[in-house]
């Protein structure tokens, strides 16, 4: 528990909390964007393979 820490400082702690949240959001945003690109690419490739009779 943070309150057990003698060096506990609410302001710094909140800053750290926000920074951690921001980094996680960025990482998740990157993953979601990559998934969008991946699904788009898979769809295009699959459509191409279907129309050329390779599937």
């Amino acid at each position: 528990m943070m309150s057990d820490d003698p060096k506990f400082d609410p302001a710094t702690d909140l800053q750290l909390f926000r920074a951690r949240q921001k980094a996680r959001n960025r990482a998740l945003g990157f993953v979601l964007l990559a998934l969008v690109v991946l699904f788009f690419a898979i769809t295009i490739v699959k459509m191409g393979l279907h129309s050329s009779g390779q599937m």
Binding site: M1, S3, P10, D13, L14, L16, R20, A27
Partner: peptide, 17 residues
């Protein structure tokens, strides 16, 4: 500010990795 005192720090994305 008591609520922030008990709020656990979210895990770093590097730890998920």
């Amino acid at each position: 500010m008591d609520s922030t005192r008990t709020l656990p720090l979210p895990a770093d994305w590097r730890d998920f990795f």
